[in-house]
Design a protein around this nucleic acid. Structure first.
Lengths: 328, 328
DNA sequence: CGACGTTCTGCAAGCGCCTGCACATAGGCG
DNA sequence: CGCCTATGTGCAGGCGCTTGCAGAACGTCG
């Protein structure tokens, strides 16, 4: 099919090694030789075969990204930023959607590890020991959660969550519902955070813990329980759920923020793509993705180095969905 | 690092060829030999090195997917279905986001073509001759648009669009705004369709043609122009824009469908993740992605075959955003 | 002008797997 | 019991690129 190094070498009157070096170690070949080789390469439309190069070098030049659900905007934005960063590092990206099943995700990760130089796991649902086992087998970086002894880029939620509760408290809300899920990596820590923040600001916390996924429909269902809870504000675990809560309240004829205030966490474009736009605990998804790639590249370069953490700040972004608590 | 065929061969007392064959052509190896080899392979945690295999075979086993914007739910859902289908075909997936720049997209496609067996282009923005040139260079399948002489899986919009206009006409709407964009593959055909449908049902068409991208914010801006247009219904080019229009109207205090009816095209989950849920021309994104993969695999298997088209049906899904036109 | 240190280039041996061909073994037939 | 077709297995030569090593070419210095 396409030209090989041998072809270029012949045409340029040099050996294949020289051709190889003009592409991988340009400084080591004399300028005029290099020019000659490049000219021939251009004429023959040659570029080094990546597969062959991978085999010889023992590295593929590709990174693997695993996400539970690509269509979820949170992960969509992560994929986007990872892909962008990977490209600037001249790395191709393998993408796999894992779904929620631990074992399958583990198997997929293992398989992908064999064809990449390293793995990026975004919001993995699997237990810590599986993650550790993967990390032990090859370069791995985590995005969106914090697991000790592992490279991770994650959002520091306490600050943002505390701001959210304080914001509600300042608006006169004394009782808030927290719509949580069961299947996400950050669920447990989240609950602790919420309790702490609510205690601090003397707010009563009603936990609406699903045994449900964080979807629009479940948020909508959760909305039905809000009016009877005695609460005047809702904090939703992510944008999809918040959307559902908003939709559910609207269907009941309740006004946001007139009857209930609503705060979401994550702040993907969904938070703005709704009326009223949602006050949100902003999570720097872009930065998480980019740092995740950087961590992974660092790990690939230095497999033995100590684990590194990148904690990104979160902050409350006030929009239209929060207002004064209605008079009792 | 990990075991090679030579290792397994030695342990199992056979040659490397036999090991190779027990993995790639199991039927050609006698049952008991095969078992022995597999047992050793399992013990040594061996699996064939994909890179080496790719090099020897001249095929990588991977497919490449290019999308303009991953975070757009339309493409998110395409990525999802492509990825799923690719996996069942035991193919890894390379993902690249191209953005809107033609040349860059072309370059990325070229680069990706070298490390995959074939390319899937979803909603590419580049001109037809570039697409043809790519298709001439290697297996390519298009998703979401129809280019003559090329393998494509696309949605047959006339039916759905016609239904949408008929639906509005039946509800008494005599004048509708069509919020279009400029940068999408289907823009031109779309306009023709809209005109034809409106003529057929005696509806006046107001084209609100952006020079804008199909984003939430632009939809929102478009909403400001709707009330003065004299129209009572809006058809938006995709879900993001429709979301924007809905948000914009809500901000103006207009009711949907009380004051204005709204129909969207695509019907990603966004169409339901809003209140009121949007009546939509449903596009079978899942099927498009899956068929795209199938077309590509067929093309890879038979590079010379005639081009194949898969036209998927669209249909109107009525939800809550359309109702009788308000009395004049 | 020879000795010696730099650059630069070529040689050859891989990287791990695939596959056409030859050979061995086994069974079927006359 | 030879001869002839399967059927299984091994051999060896790639696939296209990389890289340690050694030799060539070029300068520099005493």
């Amino acid at each position: 099919m396409s030209a090989t190094m041998a072809d270029v070498a012949r045409e340029a009157g040099v050996s294949a090694s020289t051709v190889s070096r003009t592409f991988s170690l340009p400084e080591t070949v004399r300028a005029d030789t290099r020019e000659r080789v490049l000219a021939v390469a251009r004429r023959l439309d040659f570029s080094p075969n990546r597969t062959a190069s991978s085999l010889a070098r023992g590295r593929t030049g590709a990174l693997g990204l695993l996400v539970p659900d690509i269509a979820n905007p949170y992960f969509g934005e992560i994929v986007k930023s990872v892909q962008r960063r990977a490209r600037t590092a001249d790395r191709a990206l393998f993408l796999t959607e894992t779904g929620d099943a631990h074992d399958e995700a583990y198997g997929l990760a293992k398989a992908m590890a064999r064809q990449t130089d390293g793995l990026l796991l975004a919001g993995p649902r699997m237990p810590e020991d599986m993650l550790r086992s993967l990390a032990a087998a090859g370069p791995v970086a985590l995005i969106g959660l914090h697991v000790p002894q592992t490279d991770c880029a994650y959002a520091e939620l306490p600050v943002g969550m505390r701001q959210a509760v304080r914001h509600l408290a300042a608006l006169g809300h004394r009782r808030i519902v927290y719509v949580n899920g069961t299947r996400t990596a950050r669920t447990a820590g989240f609950r602790r955070l919420m309790r702490a923040a609510c205690d601090e600001f003397r707010v009563e916390l009603v936990e609406h813990l699903g045994p449900f996924d964080l979807t629009y429909d479940n948020g909508r269902a959760a909305a039905d329980l809000v009016p009877t809870s005695g609460a005047t504000a809702v904090i939703a675990h992510n944008d999809m759920v918040a959307h559902g809560v908003a939709g559910g309240l609207a269907r009941q004829g309740r006004s946001v923020p007139g009857d209930f205030s609503l705060i979401t966490v994550d702040d993907t474009y969904l938070a703005r793509a709704i009326h009223p736009a949602l006050t949100a605990v902003h999570v720097p998804i872009d930065a998480m993705g980019a740092h995740g790639v950087d961590l992974l590249l660092a790990r690939i370069a230095d497999p033995q180095g100590p684990p590194r953490l990148v904690a990104l700040p979160t902050a409350l972004t006030v929009r239209e969905s929060t207002g004064r608590a209605p008079a009792p």
